[in-house]
Nucleic acid binder design. Structure first.
Length: 115
DNA sequence: GCCTTGACGGGTG
DNA sequence: ACACCCGCCAAGG
């Protein structure tokens, strides 16, 4: 369920991504911070690339620090990432989430609540 | 062991 | 806002 310390890094990432609310997005770096590994944001992206086939992991809700859909190339077709976001009423323009600061969800709040 | 490769992020100009 | 540059770190060759 929630990131247990003994879970693999990948599993901890997936546990957080599963908790991103509909219509909200977060970033690779925010997930890395929430896990206490601030310098592993690239590894979060790497974990996401291995998340294909995991239907319960909403990978489209993870973008980079400025709201760009940098992972869209890993969707088939690439336009699917934007389509999924728009189905949740998240506006996307030129591969960038609009009103990013309002749509952003920081998993650190969730971690705090559970402590 | 060495080198390259990224769904990244922070800093700087 | 835009463009670089550099530090990260684990996997795979």
């Amino acid at each position: 369920m929630f990131p247990k310390p003994d879970d693999s890094f990948f599993e901890q990432v997936y546990a957080i991504v599963r908790r991103i609310p509909r219509g909200r997005v977060t970033s690779y770096g925010a997930i890395a911070r929430a896990l206490g590994t601030v310098r592993s944001s690239r590894m979060v992206g790497w974990a996401m690339s291995s998340a294909h086939g995991l239907a319960d992991v909403p990978a489209h809700r993870v973008v980079n620090r400025v709201g760009m859909l940098t992972g869209k190339m890993h969707f088939a077709p690439p336009s699917l990432m934007q389509k999924l976001l728009e189905q949740e009423s998240v506006k996307v323009k030129k591969d960038k989430v609009q009103a990013f600061d309002r749509v952003f969800w920081d998993p650190i709040e969730l971690i705090k609540e559970l402590q």
